[in-house]
């Protein structure tokens, strides 16, 4: 501390000059502003988390869908090769739709498309 003997004299001299301004509601205004900002920050944080969750879900869904693509292609190839052998009337589309892998891929694709395109989806996550 560089306290000089005459510091007290100058401290007294400046007492009026540095005297605190009166409280005229400044603190209340500041507290209200800080509250408002913290609410905004919280909302922005939640929105960011929702968006991240959505993108992560879409990414994971995309990977799962991509992993199922070979099976889907194989299924179609199998269906195509079997087409000539089967009469058109006997080709059961219902059979295809009950294939678990195909259902999963279709479901995931639908979900990803819905999540990506529908703005209301972000409100749910």
């Amino acid at each position: 501390m560089m306290h000089m003997p005459d510091d007290d004299k100058f401290h007294g001299l400046l007492a009026g000059y540095v005297a605190p301004a009166e409280e005229d509601g400044f603190s209340d205004i500041m507290m209200a502003e800080i509250d408002a900002q913290s609410v905004q920050a919280s909302a922005a944080k939640h929105a960011l988390l929702r968006r991240l969750a959505l993108y992560a879900a879409a990414f994971i869904g995309g990977i799962i869908a991509a992993l199922q693509l070979p099976k889907l292609l194989g299924l179609f190839q199998g269906a195509q090769t079997s087409l000539p052998e089967l009469p058109v009337s006997e080709l059961s589309l219902a059979e295809l739709s009950f294939n678990p892998a195909l259902m999963m891929v279709a479901g995931m694709t639908g979900f990803i498309l819905w999540a990506a395109l529908d703005s209301r989806a972000s409100e749910l996550f």
Partner: peptide
């Protein structure tokens, strides 16, 4: 509230 007056001055 303790510091606002002196900071404003």
């Amino acid at each position: 509230r303790d510091t606002q007056g002196e900071i404003r001055t």
